[in-house]
Amino acid sequence: MEDFGGLEHIAKEIRKDVLVMLNKAKSGHSGGSLSVVDILVALYFGGIMSYNPKSPSWEDRDRVVLSKGHACPALYAILAKAGFYEKDLLWTLRKLGSPLQGHPDARKLPGVDASTGSLGNGITQAVGMALAARVLKKKYKVFCIMGDGELQEGITWEAFMAASHYKLSNLIVIVDFNGLQIDGKVMDIMNISPLKEKFEAFGFRTYEIGGHVYKNLIDTLITAKRNVVSPTAIIARTVKGYGVSFMANRVEYHGVPPSNQELEKALKELDNGV
C-alpha cells in the first residue's frame, strides 16, 4: 500500500501556517482555506504539476487558478513551502503593502497564475488559458479550484459550456465541495445538486471523491491528466474547517479568523492529530 504520510505531514504544517496567518491578519476566511488544503498539497507536492519556483512565469508550467480566491491563505502557505518566496512573507497577509492581498493578485505575488476573488472570474480565465494552449501549441494543464457555492454564479456554467465545446482536455476543474456558504448550507441557500449529473451533461468526465483522502486525490488527478477527450471535473467532498474540531462544518468560521485562544487550541489539536 502506498504511503501518503509525507503529504499528510505537509498538510498539517500548511494548516498550522494558515491559522497563524489568519490570526495575525485578524481577518480572512478560515473554513474554506482549511477545506482546500489537501487538494493543493496533492497538486503541488503529489507529483501532479510541473512548476519552477525559480521561474514563476515559465511558459510551459502547469497553471493553478484558485477561483475560490478567498481560500488564498492556503495557496500562499503552499507557494511559500514550494519555494516561490520566503515563509516570513506569510505573516504580512492582508497588511498594507503586502503582496499577500486579501484575495490573490497575480501581479503582486509570484506563483499566483490569475487574480481572483470575485467568484466565477477564475474559471473563465482558466478556460482562456486552456484554450490559449491550443494556439500556442503548448502541453500545459490548467487546474481550476472552485467552491461549491461559487457554482451558483451563472458565468461558471458559461465557462463549462465553452470548455466542453472546445474540448479542453487540458482543463481540470476541482470542486472543493464543503457544502457550506456564508449564509448557510449550499443545499438550503441555492441547491446545486445533482452536481455530478450537471457536469456530465455539460460534457465533463466527472469523478466524485473524498477530498481529504490522498490516494483518491492523486489517483484521480493522474487519470484526469491522461484524459485527451474532454475537460475533467473532480468533485472533492470536503469538510469546511477540516483539521480543527471546533471549526469543522461550522458556517460561522467562513470569514472569521481564529482568536489567540482558538489558535492555541487549534495548533495543539493539529499537533496531536485529534
Binding site: 473563465t124 480565465q125 451563472g154 458565468i155 459550456m161 465553452a162
Partner: peptide, 16 residues
C-alpha cells in the same frame, strides 16, 4: 455569453 468571452480573453492574455 459575453461575460465568459471577456474572461476567456483575460486568460488568453495571461499566456501572452
Amino acid at each position: 455569453a459575453e461575460a465568459n468571452m471577456t474572461g476567456v480573453a483575460a486568460g488568453m492574455a495571461l499566456t501572452g
